[in-house]
Amino acid sequence: MDVGNSVPAEAAFEPLLQFEMEMGTFLSEWQHCDHVSTYLARMISHNRTDPVRHSNFFSSALNELLEVSFRGGTSSGQIGLSIYRHGPIERVQITFPCPAEQVPFYREAVQKIDRSDAHARYLDSISTDMAPSRESVLLDLAINFDASIRIEESTSPAVTLIVDLPLEGLVS
């Protein structure tokens, strides 16, 4: 089942990088989010027009996805991360195990990104939430990074978020 917002027709995304880690190991250290996002961003940005700024922008978005996984994930199984490229867009596919009862909340958060009041809800979130919800993080990606986000669900208690980031155009 796919739920998502404004994803373009499937294009020929080329694989750039795959990363897997035992979820228990990932959850053992909060700094993994920062380290992994910084390292992977640097690797995939090296041949962008402005590698340093692309890496900074990409790391910012990827870190938020990793933090969502960290906060919502369970320790069994693996976190899997694949990065693809098509022209100016990088696609991040992140899969992490989570409690089955949490899956509808991710689905709902992704669905809300498409609504016409997304911007207003994002401003409301900034204005009133002391800590960001998973919905406001996804709204942040959609609004500040021009991301297209969709969700894939499987029979196992896991969530896969597919996030297209057109950062090359934003940076250049």
């Binding site: 900074n56 938020e64 939430d129 800590a131 406001s136």
Partner: peptide, 17 residues
């Protein structure tokens, strides 16, 4: 400011607002 996650952003912004 090279990187700031949403947790920090929300916290600082809330104080400012």
């Amino acid at each position: 400011l090279i990187q700031m996650n949403n947790t920090a952003f929300h916290a600082f912004v809330r104080v400012a607002l």
